[in-house]
Amino acid sequence: MLWAWESPEDLTTLDPTKTGVAFLSRELLIGRTVQVRPRRQPLRLATNTWLMAVVRIETAPDFLPTTDTIAETASDIAALAQQPGVRAIQVDFDATTSQRNFYAAVLKRLRTQLPSGIPLSITALVGWCGDDSWLRRLPIDEAVPMFFRMGGPAAIRAIRPKDASLAREPLCSGSVGIATDETWPAIHNHQRVYVFLPGSWTQQDLAHVNALGYHGLRGDSLR
């Protein structure tokens, strides 16, 4: 799966039989209320591209987890399933420890609002994927451990290769998040690979992705 973030993206040359697209559809800024910032950049796709709509959540300094913000957040995310061709939803939220209860409540409510047949994925900090993970209680289909941006330049050199065994939680073991500008952990045949590229995907990048031998890049093996 390619992450298509907030840049104009032309993914029409991506092979849709091998690779799906997880595109940033909107951002939510949660304070005392929920502000929505929709996608402002065009996204061009090959026909029959398997699509996952991603919502990024940020919290404002006046973040207040109330029943209203939980309900509003869940319904704002659920609305993503309405977009043409969307087959799954992913939530990207680097929740702090104190925000986990809020996040869990949102996901539980969201799960009831999504149509059956729409899988629910979240991104995960690698540290969430250890033993006795808090993720285990969540009504999600996968958690994608992000093996990138885990520290500054010193950290890149300190961890080589990246340690895939950090992701011991079963919800995390079926997928892996990598970035094109960092080292990768070992990737296994059964894993769904999400690839992040800073900036817009170029035709050269897409040709390279098309040539990669990974299995499971297409999203419909999510369920």
Partner: peptide, 17 residues
């Protein structure tokens, strides 16, 4: 003409100097 202000990327994003 509004530019897209880059959204935060996914990832933990620890600070560096």
């Amino acid at each position: 003409i509004l530019f897209a202000i880059p959204a935060s990327s996914c990832g933990p994003d620890f600070p560096f100097a």
